[in-house]
Computed example of a mutant assay.
Amino acid sequence: MTYQCFIYDKNCFFSQGIVTLTLRLFARETLSGCAASNDYSQMVAQIRDNSSNEHHLWLLCDLDSLPRERFQALHLMRGFCQHRNKKLIILLGEHNMPLFITLYSLLPNAHWLHKKESVEYARLFFQELLHKRHNGNCFSHSLTKYTRNRLQNRTDDAISGNEWWLMEEIIKGKTLSQISCEVNVDVRRLSYIKRHLMKRLNIRNNIDLFAAIKGIIP
């Protein structure tokens, strides 16, 4: 069985580091190709390519490199990681951590790597991924630690799917009234979601909310 890797990340330096790590990892395996690109259409082509099941395909996707409407992009990936020989690895930045639980609920079959993981922990992550032939997820050390701390401290900082969707609409410059008309949802419901999000993020005004959204959804 051969392996192929495709890395989608607009940070070419990070991509090159992953390529180097991957080449070392597969020293004793058959690696037929390892490509990196910042072109979203190329990643979509990889997701939709069902021409061959004779090789294992690892698709590494940086969350921040996805188009603005990420919900749609993530739903496109759901079917990909359900294939036996295909593995989806989501690359998360530090500011994405509040989204982790929501992302996991959207992509329960994906694997998760924190982009600021040390080289040693990243290497261990890929080794575990290589030997995990069937069911089960791989989580990098920092994500495991983050989740454990949240459970121990019983913090409630995870952003829900509805809150994330509303953030994407707000950052487009839309008012709650406009969003309400477009999706046929009561504006009072949208206002409640917004207030709940502001309380969760400890934000008191719209200016700070917009700044926080820009930090979570660059």
Results as ranks from 00 to 15, higher is better:
residue 104 Y to H: 06
residue 73 A to L: 02
residue 125 F to R: 09
residue 117 E to I: 04
residue 58 W to V: 13
residue 57 L to H: 09
residue 89 I to S: 03
residue 86 K to A: 06
residue 134 H to V: 12
residue 70 R to H: 06
residue 113 L to W: 01
residue 126 F to Q: 12
residue 124 L to I: 10
residue 132 K to Q: 14
residue 94 E to D: 12
residue 72 Q to I: 14
residue 141 H to V: 11
residue 67 P to K: 12
residue 62 D to R: 05
residue 83 H to V: 02
residue 139 F to H: 11
residue 94 E to L: 07
residue 73 A to T: 00
residue 61 C to A: 11
residue 101 I to F: 10
residue 144 T to V: 13
residue 97 M to N: 05
residue 128 E to V: 00
residue 111 H to G: 06
residue 131 H to Q: 13
residue 82 Q to A: 12
residue 117 E to S: 13
residue 88 L to G: 08
residue 154 R to Y: 13
residue 127 Q to G: 11
residue 65 S to H: 11
residue 84 R to N: 09
residue 90 I to S: 05
residue 121 Y to I: 01
residue 104 Y to P: 00
residue 111 H to M: 04
residue 87 K to I: 08
residue 129 L to Y: 09
residue 78 R to M: 06
residue 79 G to Q: 13
residue 134 H to Q: 14
residue 136 G to A: 10
residue 84 R to Q: 11
residue 115 K to G: 00
residue 124 L to T: 07
residue 99 L to R: 08
residue 109 N to V: 03
residue 78 R to F: 03
residue 129 L to H: 03
residue 65 S to Q: 12
residue 124 L to N: 08
residue 57 L to E: 03
residue 123 R to C: 03
residue 151 L to S: 13
residue 83 H to G: 02
residue 69 E to N: 08
residue 126 F to A: 14
residue 109 N to K: 11
residue 65 S to N: 09
residue 77 M to R: 04
residue 138 C to E: 09
residue 140 S to Q: 08
residue 68 R to G: 00
residue 130 L to F: 05
residue 145 K to L: 14
residue 145 K to F: 12
residue 120 E to G: 03
residue 99 L to C: 06
residue 143 L to V: 12
residue 104 Y to F: 05
residue 89 I to K: 07
residue 65 S to R: 12
residue 89 I to D: 05
residue 142 S to F: 11
residue 97 M to Y: 11
residue 100 F to Y: 12
residue 130 L to T: 08
residue 91 L to M: 08
residue 155 T to R: 15
residue 107 L to A: 04
residue 108 P to W: 00
residue 132 K to R: 15
residue 72 Q to Y: 08
residue 109 N to F: 04
residue 106 L to G: 00
residue 154 R to H: 15
residue 126 F to Y: 15
residue 133 R to G: 08
residue 135 N to L: 13
residue 137 N to T: 05
residue 132 K to V: 08
residue 135 N to P: 00
residue 156 D to Y: 12
residue 152 Q to R: 15
residue 131 H to M: 11
residue 71 F to L: 05
residue 114 H to Y: 07
residue 123 R to T: 09
residue 105 S to T: 08
residue 135 N to E: 11
residue 107 L to N: 02
residue 70 R to W: 04
residue 106 L to P: 02
residue 66 L to M: 14
residue 82 Q to F: 01
residue 137 N to D: 03
residue 129 L to I: 05
residue 94 E to T: 09
residue 84 R to E: 14
residue 126 F to T: 13
residue 111 H to F: 01
residue 89 I to M: 07
residue 105 S to H: 04
residue 108 P to D: 06
residue 58 W to I: 12
residue 137 N to E: 07
residue 152 Q to D: 10
residue 146 Y to M: 10
residue 91 L to T: 00
